[in-house]
Nucleic acid binder design. Structure first.
Length: 875
DNA sequence: GCGGACTGCTTACCT
DNA sequence: ACAGGTAAGCAGTCCGCG
């Protein structure tokens, strides 16, 4: 469900709208737990000796057991396997069993099972420590008991994850069922392949070398192309601009589309009196129903054959709507293969992935897809990744002829499916790889952020080493000291260096870049929460920032867990899979698999530094984060100094990059060698520009490659909220600029620039742009009521929309124009071209183009004898 | 009571 | 709920002005 606000929301006047408000119907009755779902034969139990892919682990409350959800490639169905090891929920404490025995809140609890004494390893010292394990019958009991002991360890871990750690399971890998237990099936690799991987780790420490073997199956195991079906529903909506409330489920479901990677495409549609119900030929199977109940009945019949259901925003809309609507139509709860639990749409015959949540994930967006989409509705994501969009409508869904409705509905399911199948199943493979690395089940993985993934990976690795997972307070007691002051108010420590660039055009610019700077620092300096600022350490290395001041010290006695895992992933990525992804000896399809593998690693590698500086991360260690950025500054400052000592001009640099002006090959090699020998870091030639136009601002330039392609960074012209007409005009000017080949070409371009800007100004004055082109598009980041400190313009526009009866929600993009009226803004839907405040737009044009003009050394005041000149002089 | 200087808030970007 | 750094535009406040 897209949240775009469209023009036809306003075709009715306010009064009419209120008159048409439907009467409130009763919310469906709440059903008691007993009446709820009884297990159906939708899912069978796994068979002994068969091989399955582990997709996820859940807790079955009725059987009080962990249950594995498995996929069989042959039958393409889901199977379950209950725990046969008698595994139970537990937590740990550092007091003796005798003392725990005296705590009645624990031992008198009906769920209390027994106590055990266990030995764990202290991550800080490597010493063995004795702990008491409090074993219970039910995961909820841990929550009741954990406050009854002074220190409760590992008491905040979800039970099914605890099960995964204890059994060393890796979701996404193949397993064979042996004696009722899962046994990992390793991929068969050629000798040379293994040798090649081992070679990449020849210089690593023992801890890393041991771990390499365990990681190979994660990256090399085949990813099964699980059978899946994307679904999308359309609901009759008599009220304009309002999304139906799933919990009320007041209005009929008029159409459901299904699209599967087994090749089937289907639309189930309701015949209606109120619209043209003629149905012509479609390239999908169409089934027509007289009643909504029959339609849903048929839908359930089809869907339960699928092990995996995909939706776009199904957690918040499609699944709850189907569920509550079915109850309303008197389906028995046990006949509905869906449920709604904790704001999640559950699919009871298998697994449900809500792709909206996955694509919204910041790490997925930035690291895996390199920010290719910046809005998160189906249309935007599909357009960016597939080049495919939703069917455009010029009226409400409720008014569509059935033919159009079928087409529209079918497209949505098709796009949703394609989001996982395009490019050789790239997204699907990515999800599986992320699950394997994080050791998380698919449903949890696709609904949580990267910090949860990293937490889970580290917990699993702690358990594998039999390390005790320390309490947050214990980590903070050692590594909470912060010595630097952030540049930005409100931030906790100092970050990266940004070199102030000159304004101007520079030819032959080479960009050098440290390969994964922060991850490499973590690995090379052995940084981890248990190695920074710990006493009782023999070999210490001091961390200094760029001024030479000592900030922290790192213990080199033993490898740090963060350094080992980050180093491992980094080396696998750089030395093995990035190479394989480009290797000419590998088939095109295999290359794309390796590309997914390296992208999945990138997500973890790049986010690791950040999570240690994030207060809510359970292994939060500010000293770790501060050490990383300080070393980063030290490294780049030293290297910049070295470049300058070679007589080179370093024009610009940000965090891990350096823009060198016309350097010789010899000097570049010299610098790269210097960095390798001094820091053990890899410096690479990242880009070579024909020229770079610097505006003089940081994080703001236009780089042009020899072939005329461009990189625009940070400029107003590329910001989403800049009006479309400015972007369009900027693009034309950009094309002009790319034709520059030498300084001699500049004067001519200058003249053309000047002429072009005069044109824009004239066009603006004569209302030559339409309202949509003039709109600023700004995202509402929170509910309207939460803007208490001030009222920004997009909020003013949103308030006007709201008073008009249009629902406005967080993440909606508000489109508004600047006008000469009280608020100074109006939503495009309510504005007229005649009321536009031209001065404001001239100002916006000026600031946008100034960023480019400054590179050419042009000031607005330099435009002589023009109307623009006189205009700006009076400002 | 008005306007410029200033701070703070908000959004969107860069690495 | 990964981090900090930079920029733009506006909202709101303070202060001086005999």
């Amino acid at each position: 469900m897209a949240k775009q606000i469209t023009l036809f929301d306003f075709t009715l006047k306010k009064e009419e709208k209120e008159a048409k408000e439907p009467r409130k119907e009763e919310i469906p009755q709440i059903i008691s737990n007993e009446e709820r779902k009884k297990p159906k034969d939708w899912i069978r139990e796994a068979e002994e000796g068969k091989t399955y892919f582990l997709l996820q682990v859940d807790y079955d409350g009725k059987k009080s057991k962990a249950v594995c959800k498995l996929y069989d490639k042959e039958t393409q169905k889901i199977y379950i396997l209950y725990d046969s090891t008698n595994h139970k929920p537990y937590f740990l404490t550092d007091i003796e069993p005798e003392k725990v025995n005296k705590i009645s809140k624990i031992v008198r609890d009906p769920s209390f099972d027994h106590l055990e004494t266990v030995t764990k390893i202290d991550p800080y010292t490597g010493n063995k420590i004795k702990l008491t394990k409090i074993v219970v019958k039910d995961p909820l009991a841990v929550r009741r008991m954990r406050n009854a002991v002074p220190k409760a360890y590992e008491a905040h871990i979800k039970y099914f994850n605890n099960y995964i750690y204890d059994l060393g399971l890796i979701p996404g890998l193949p397993y064979v069922v042996k004696k009722g237990k899962l046994e990992q099936v390793n991929p068969e690799l050629k000798g040379e392949e293994v040798d090649e991987i081992k070679k990449a780790f020849a210089d690593s420490d023992e801890m890393t070398k041991e771990a390499v073997n365990d990681w190979i199956p994660i990256f090399e195991s085949e990813v099964p192309d699980v059978k899946r079906v994307a679904i999308d529903i359309e609901v009759y909506t008599p009220v304009k601009g309002r999304v139906p409330d799933p919990e009320k489920a007041e209005f009929p479901i008029i159409s459901i589309s299904l699209a599967s990677n087994d090749g089937s495409k289907r639309v189930l549609v309701l015949t209606r009196e109120d619209v043209n119900s003629q149905i012509s030929k479609h390239d999908v199977t169409v089934e027509v129903f007289k009643t909504e109940k029959e339609l849903l009945q048929r839908f359930f019949e089809i869907i339960v054959d699928y092990p995996l259901v995909l939706t776009f925003n199904g957690d918040d809309f499609d699944i709850p709507y189907i569920y509550f609507r079915s109850l309303k139509l008197n389906f028995k709860p046990e006949d509905i293969p869906f449920d709604v639990v904790n704001d999640e749409g559950k699919y009871l015959a298998g697994i449900h992935i809500d792709l909206y949540k996955f694509f919204f994930n910041r790490a997925v967006r930035n690291y895996a897809f390199e920010g290719k989409y910046s809005e998160y509705n189906l249309d935007a994501v599909a357009t960016a990744l597939l080049g495919m969009s939703k069917v455009k409508l010029d009226t409400l869904i409720s008014f569509l002829d059935l033919d159009k409705l079928i087409e529209y509905n079918a497209r949505d399911a098709e796009i949703t499916l394609k989001l996982t199948t395009f490019n050789n199943n790239l997204v699907w493979k990515l999800i599986i790889l992320l699950a394997r690395i994080s050791k998380m089940g698919l449903e949890e993985l696709t609904r949580t952020e990267v910090s949860t993934w990293i937490k889970n990976l580290y917990y699993w690795e702690h358990r594998r080493r039999n390390w005790l997972i320390p309490l947050k307070e214990e980590i903070l007691a050692r590594s909470s000291q912060i010595k630097t002051a952030a540049v930005i108010k409100g931030k906790r420590y100092k970050g990266a260096v940004v070199i102030d660039p000159p304004a101007g055009i520079f030819f032959n610019v080479v960009v050098l870049d440290f390969a994964s700077l922060y991850p490499s620092i973590i690995r090379n300096w052995n940084i981890s929460y248990e190695t920074v600022d710990v006493e009782s350490c023999k070999n210490k290395e001091y961390v200094r920032d760029e001024t030479g001041e000592v900030l922290h010290y790192i213990c080199k006695d033993k490898p740090g867990i963060t350094a080992v895992i980050t180093g491992l992933l980094r080396d696998f990525r750089v030395k093995v899979y990035k190479k394989k992804a480009k290797s000419p000896n590998v088939s095109e399809e295999q290359r794309s698999v390796y590309d997914v593998v390296q992208r999945a690693m990138k997500v973890f590698i790049n986010a690791t530094y950040g999570v240690f500086g994030a207060e809510n991360f359970p292994l939060y260690a500010p000293a770790v984060a501060e050490s990383v950025t300080a070393l980063g500054r030290f490294v780049i400052t030293t290297t910049v100094g070295y470049c300058r000592s070679l007589g080179l001009q370093v024009l610009y640099g940000d965090t891990d990059s350096m823009f060198l002006w016309n350097p010789s090959k010899e000097k570049l090699e010299d610098i790269i060698k210097f960095v390798k020998s001094k820091f053990g870091l890899d410096l690479e030639v990242d880009k070579v520009y024909k020229f770079v136009a610097f505006s003089g601002l940081k994080k703001n330039y236009l780089g042009v490659y020899p072939d005329g392609k461009t990189d625009i960074k940070g400029m107003l012209a590329k910001k989403r909220n800049t009006p479309e007409f400015i972007k369009k005009e900027f693009n034309e000017i950009k094309q002009l600029v790319t034709t520059i080949n030498s300084p001699n070409d500049i004067p001519k371009i200058k003249d053309e620039l000047e002429a072009k800007i005069k044109d824009i100004y004239e066009k603006l004055r004569h209302k030559g742009y339409n309202l949509d082109e003039l709109a600023f598009r700004v995202m509402l980041s929170k509910p309207l009521e939460s803007y208490t400190k001030n009222t920004p313009q997009h909020v003013k526009a949103a308030l006007q929309l709201k008073s008009y009866g249009v629902m406005v929600l967080p993440r909606d993009i508000i489109m508004f124009v600047k006008v000469k009226s009280k608020d100074g803004v109006k939503p495009v839907q309510l504005a007229k071209l005649s009321e536009i405040d031209v001065d404001k737009y001239v100002e916006a044009v000026r600031t946008t183009f100034e960023q480019l003009l400054k590179a050419f050394g042009i000031n607005w005041s330099q435009f002589s004898t023009t109307s623009i000149d006189s205009f700006f002089n009076k400002k």
